[in-house]
């Protein structure tokens, strides 16, 4: 299973997505009901990943809205 941590509205929400094979980040977003427009960036295996990059069943993915400075 993949652990998906979503940051939104100053909160972190954890989801577990059951996987039996590697899937794309886009697939993960559908599973946790997040639209592509809401995503600023995602981190997996200590690096940024794109929508077409693969997520393995044992991975942790962190998904963020656009974050800026100030």
């Amino acid at each position: 299973m993949a652990k998906v941590i979503v940051f939104s509205g100053d909160r972190l929400t954890e989801h577990i997505v059951e996987l039996d094979r590697a899937v794309t980040l886009g697939y993960i977003l559908n599973k946790v009901n997040i639209s592509r427009e809401e995503v600023g960036f995602a981190i997996c295996r200590s690096k940024y990943i794109c929508l077409d990059d693969l997520v393995n069943p044992e991975d942790e993915v962190r998904i963020f809205p656009p974050l800026g400075g100030g």
Binding site: R36, E37, V39, G40, F41, Y48, C50, L51, F64, P66, L67, G68, G69
Partner: peptide, 18 residues
């Protein structure tokens, strides 16, 4: 200075509004 340009994470994805 951090206020030179928009940060990478604001423009990292083609689907992003920004």
């Amino acid at each position: 200075d951090h206020m030179v340009a928009a940060h990478d994470t604001m423009v990292a994805s083609k689907d992003q509004y920004g």
